[in-house]
């Protein structure tokens, strides 16, 4: 089968980008979307053109490195699916496919479809951890954790940090990402001592980095490949409010 792609090309962060049209032949329904780009790149390379730069690594939906906006939707049309796990059988060959990078000011384009998402690392560094130096831990069974708390914490901890939530959010907010970590750690007994300061510090850092404010549109959770629920944001707000009430900072 033959597919038409309109791919965002941009040589560097400050360069002007544009959509460039390519036709790709020999596409089979079992190919993943990234394999389609592989095929395109092999051809571009041999033709003496620059291949399309795009991020990817594990190709099994867990590392969070890949992420393309396909026809206006972060990670493409399939629900709860990363770009690497998206297959061509879901696309109509007759309709051109538009491929763009994540768009958000804190995610500057590096080249073509590659963006710099290190702002998400800064948010985690601001407090997305439990301070537990190696060697100082009590026995793992010293503190039981109720199963429902552990399960809900896991649901939030499943975040792969791909940034699709930011890409989809009309406000360019990273709230779902931040809230997922705050929820994961805030639900566990081990996370209690730093719970409120963690939420406040992470949120402040997120705002300082230039992410937009959350208006709870739900666009984030709709594209999240791991289905992180919007409830996590309510939890974050709760902890931030508690931080403000408890210790005037």
């Amino acid at each position: 089968m033959r597919y038409t792609l309109r791919v965002w090309r941009q040589t560097g962060p400050d360069a002007r980008g544009r959509l460039v049209e390519y036709a790709v032949d020999g596409v089979t329904p079992d190919m993943s979307f990234l394999e389609l780009l592989d095929v395109l790149n092999e051809r571009l390379l041999l033709d003496g053109d620059e291949p399309v730069a795009f991020d990817h690594d594990c190709r099994e939906g867990i590392c969070g490195m890949c992420g393309l906006v396909i026809d206006g939707v972060a990670h493409g049309p399939e629900k709860a699916t990363t770009t690497c796990q998206l297959h061509m059988r879901h696309f109509d060959p007759a309709v051109p496919i538009v491929v763009e990078p994540w768009r958000a000011a804190p995610f500057p384009v590096v080249r073509d479809l590659v963006v710099d998402r290190s702002a998400l690392d800064r948010v985690i560094e601001a407090g997305g951890y439990i301070s537990a130096p190696a060697g100082a831990a009590p026995d793992a069974h010293a503190v039981p954790v109720p199963k429902p708390a552990a399960d809900t914490a896991f649901d939030a901890a499943a975040c792969i940090g791909c940034g699709a939530c930011v890409a989809a959010c009309p406000n360019g907010s990273a709230m779902l990402f931040t809230a997922a970590k705050v929820t994961h750690l805030g639900l566990l007994p081990q996370g209690q001592p730093e719970r409120h300061s963690r939420a406040a510090d992470m949120l402040r850092t997120q705002d300082e980095l230039g992410f937009g404010g959350c208006t709870q549109t739900g666009a984030c959770t709709a594209v999240c490949p791991k289905g992180i629920p919007l409830d996590t944001i309510a939890r974050l707000n709760h902890d931030v409010l508690a931080a403000a009430l408890r210790s005037p900072r």
């Binding site: 951890y129 439990i130 537990a132 109720p146 552990a150 901890a157 566990l188």
Partner: peptide
Amino acid sequence: QCVAQGVPFAR
């Protein structure tokens, strides 16, 4: 160590 860090193991 991992439990102290908040790794959500199955319980």
